[in-house]
Amino acid sequence: MTVTETNAPPPTGTSPGTTPLVEMRDICVSFGGIHAVDHVSVDLYPGEVVGLLGHNGAGKSTLIKVLSGAIKADSGEILVEGEKVEITNPRDARAHNIETIYQTLALADNLDAASNLFLGRELTTPMGFVDDAAMEAETRKIMGRLNSNFKKFADPVKALSGGQRQSVAIARAVYFNAKILIMDEPTAALGPQETKMVAELVQELKKQGIGIFLISHDIHDVMDLCDRVSVMKNGQLVGTERVEDVTDDDILGMIILGKQPEKAA
């Protein structure tokens, strides 16, 4: 169990005794009087996948943007491996090995795969110029692992299919030794084949001890891939449950009605 939590935390931890990779405590974000995120606390352990569920506008994306540095929280604190950290912009998040795959993919359509993969972290020659050849070589390596069908290295990513674009976004998150990975609707735009690829990737990353926050609408995705789920409604945390303790219906009840499953209450 975590030491600092006192207010009866939901069942936590795949491996009790270890410090969580990330703890977000009592996070509040409001936009012009609307509480988008209202005193929410979640945590994530190494090698664990935590699903974040909720309707559109429930606050999942906002919560996760606080962690990835895209939005600044009004109050609350973030701990990475037990240390309190300040995340005020995406650079801070990256410095703490927090990588995000955004729902929009956040790719610059006019640049090629390698430029996107290394955007903000370009490899440079000793002279200080960007080293396109080296970046393309690295991109070829990692894409060979992730999606061996990927061949369009010279084209701008605009010319790629949805699945190929997704693999570029995933490659970008995985390449830089992420410890904490945030996946916002990673399979929303994908076909069955590519969805399977993402599922396999999630399993592989878990084995490497990476912690993953998975935001999804698809409850089956979540039940298949996640160890725990945290459900949000109207900016508040409904609850966090271990996947094996609850049924699909319990989860749906939490999402729609905002009520705790009976046995865990």
């Binding site: 912009n89 995406p90 956040a106 359509d109 006019n110 640049l111 955007l119 960007v130």
Partner: peptide, 20 residues
């Protein structure tokens, strides 16, 4: 890098911002 960032920002300002 400056040039790369100029073109990335033009292609997708949000992506550039999120890339730090």
């Amino acid at each position: 890098r400056l040039g790369r960032y100029i073109f990335a920002t033009g292609g997708n300002p949000d992506a550039a911002e999120l890339s730090g």
